[in-house]
Nucleic acid binder design. Sequence first.
DNA 1: GAACCGAAAGCGAGCGCTCGCTCGGCGAAC
DNA 2: GTTCGCCGAGCGAGCGCTCGCTTTCGGTTC
Lengths: 238, 238
Amino acid sequence: MISYGDFKQQIDTLRLDICREIYRQNKALIRVKKEDVAVARLTAIFDRTLEISNRLGFQAMSVRDLSEATGISMGALYAYIESKDKLLEMILGMGRMAVARVMTMEPPEPVDPRGQLRWLLRAHLFLTEAMQPWFYFSYMETRHFDQQARERAMEGELMSERYFADCLRAGVEQGVFQPRDPEFTAALIKPLLQDWYLKRWKYRRRNIDVEAYADAVIAFIEPAVLQPAVTAGCAAND
Amino acid sequence: MISYGDFKQQIDTLRLDICREIYRQNKALIRVKKEDVAVARLTAIFDRTLEISNRLGFQAMSVRDLSEATGISMGALYAYIESKDKLLEMILGMGRMAVARVMTMEPPEPVDPRGQLRWLLRAHLFLTEAMQPWFYFSYMETRHFDQQARERAMEGELMSERYFADCLRAGVEQGVFQPRDPEFTAALIKPLLQDWYLKRWKYRRRNIDVEAYADAVIAFIEPAVLQPAVTAGCAAND
DNA sequence: GAACCGAAAGCGAGCGCTCGCTCGGCGAAC
DNA sequence: GTTCGCCGAGCGAGCGCTCGCTTTCGGTTC
């Protein structure tokens, strides 16, 4: 099973690639021609935006705040972003791309439903840990988005539930999991994963890292989904 | 066990009392003297504020929006609220009072840990259902509060976890619950309860009401906390 | 290497607008 | 007639964004 450290490294490489791709997509609107400079500054703009927004909210962040935080003047900022709204769109696009790429990574080897559930849980937690600012931002700002962006966010939520529901259904068919409503169970799993990036302070003050949290969540979920006969064994072995 | 309908009625009565109390507390700052008029309008101001804020965010709600929604002119509004910030404080105070009063309601009769856990879960869900706009507001706006209000919100979160942790600890001592870290388990229960008021759209589109959600959460949690021997019986009986 | 030049990138005061909030005037009620 | 409550135009501040100007960069000429 992949460790968080390895995972984090992959994500960090991915992030720069994605920023570069966003630059190329929006080349027509960005007035800065030298790609390396532009990508580096765009990345900084995104990072600072997430940081300030997650403290104050995106609306409450003024472009002057962002200018001060990045060290880029007002005028120069608008050479990189078309408007504050488009900045938000670019940031959302960046996160969606990252999620899409990670989710198409296959689990290391074909596994049984229980192993697959564990892999799914860990992968989700690791991803949201590596990109915590983005996930927090996306969760908290959803209601300020325009309709299209809100629908995309809801679809994202439902899609990730589908991964879990599919896995649960497969487990039920193989007799490994209890025959509970898989959609509902998946819906209950989601907030357990989201709590990790929404209330970091709670776990940080208890010195719980993402690996420990993953273990605890798995131990919490499995008794509810595994057939009772298997449950006892599970509770005992970690 | 109390039904949601009964519970909701109690809360509705409580709400008016609390608005009246808030009026009396802030009498010095409110320029309107006739109590009945003032309380009625204050209640309307709170309701409309929650409604607009939960759609757009509190910051994005302009006082002009609120004036239009309540039918009270700008000038008159400021006869009821000292400032937009104080309005936020009053609303937070209202919710805190309601929570405090409900939480001091005793469970109908002394029960075993398992029954008490069920009662706690249902009471929490019913409360957040009856006052969903407030809980949603409080959750989403926390980061915009000043430090004191933020600390109060965090304390509220931790306090409600403590209820669950205490209950779990009692169950462990009596041999009913598994000897897991009660604080951590309580921390995982919290997001399951919060999902109900944070993502209503998800459950509404599946026609799941608060009673059904409570049942599902109980069925999901109990296998994780009950001793395995008892677990099998639980999974079978609802 | 120095001097020069056009293009690229950066700068920040200022624009129009909306925000939270105020205040002088006004009608209704006792 | 005095009091109470309501009204909405108007205030300074701060917002997103622009634009005329300056600085920096990279190549060319002597």
